[in-house]
Amino acid sequence: MANDSWEPDRSPEDALETEPEDTPHSDPVSSAGDGTDPAPAPAPAPEAAGGPESDGAAYTAELQELEDRWRHALADLDNLRKRHARELERERTAERSRTAAAFLPVLDNLELALAHSGPAPDAVVEGVRAVRDQAVNILDLLGYPRHAETGVVFDPARHEAVAVVQDPDAEPGTVVEVLRPGYGDGERQLRPATVTVAKGD
């Protein structure tokens, strides 16, 4: 039985004209072959935060801080050394003063012995005087010179007046007699000299 459907004959040229114009072409670069989109290219890594310049600035600041702390420590150490030296000198001065003051009663007794020696043998008197002079020299070396001068102007810083006497041969206001010698001067005075002073007109 003959086929009732009829199709016109198509020449090869007609088949070429009827093919779709926009045939998709596969991209060999972008196609992954598995139906998924290709992975994006990795982004360039950002530079380290701060960079070498900021690191150098931080090191400089830290070095400056350490240097400042070092200078402060040196200054504190120097102040401590100076304070220790001052305290040590004060202690030495106080100790010299205590030691020298302990000699004073001995000197006073020697002075009395010489004053009341009277007809004692010259050898004894000279021996006592030599001991007295040795003790006076020790005090002088310690920084406490002896003061027993007469005829000098009365000085309240160096003399302690216990009497005012009339003496025509002495200038008014001068020391007539030293009853007990003084030792030292100014801040390093062990005691003032005990004296009598000439009366003024």
Rank of each mutant, 00 (worst) to 15 (best):
N79F: 09
L74C: 10
G50L: 01
T93M: 08
R83M: 11
E62S: 13
W70Y: 15
E89Y: 07
H72A: 15
A73F: 03
A49K: 05
E65F: 02
E89D: 10
R71M: 05
D68W: 05
P52I: 03
R83D: 05
T60Q: 15
E89G: 01
T93W: 06
L77P: 00
L77V: 02
D55W: 06
A85Y: 04
L80H: 01
K82D: 10
L77S: 13
H84G: 04
R69T: 15
Y59A: 15
L63I: 10
G50E: 01
R81P: 00
P52M: 02
A75M: 08
R81V: 01
R92C: 06
R81E: 06
A85I: 01
T93G: 03
T60Y: 08
Q64S: 12
E91Q: 10
A94T: 02
R92I: 13
E91P: 00
T60N: 06
A49S: 07
T93H: 05
R83N: 11
D76N: 14
N79C: 09
Y59R: 12
G51Q: 01
R83C: 08
R69A: 15
T93S: 09
S54E: 13
Q64G: 06
D76T: 05
H84V: 06
L80D: 08
R96V: 01
E53Q: 13
H84D: 06
E87Y: 12
L66A: 06
E89T: 13
A73V: 03
R81S: 05
A73C: 07
A75C: 01
R81H: 01
R92E: 09
N79P: 00
D76A: 11
G51A: 04
E62I: 07
N79Y: 05
A94G: 04
D55T: 10
G50I: 09
Y59C: 12
A73I: 00
N79S: 15
W70R: 13
L63F: 11
D76Q: 10
T60F: 13
E62L: 14
D76E: 14
G50W: 03
R90K: 13
Q64W: 07
K82F: 04
D78N: 13
R90Q: 14
G50K: 02
H84E: 11
G51I: 03
L74T: 02
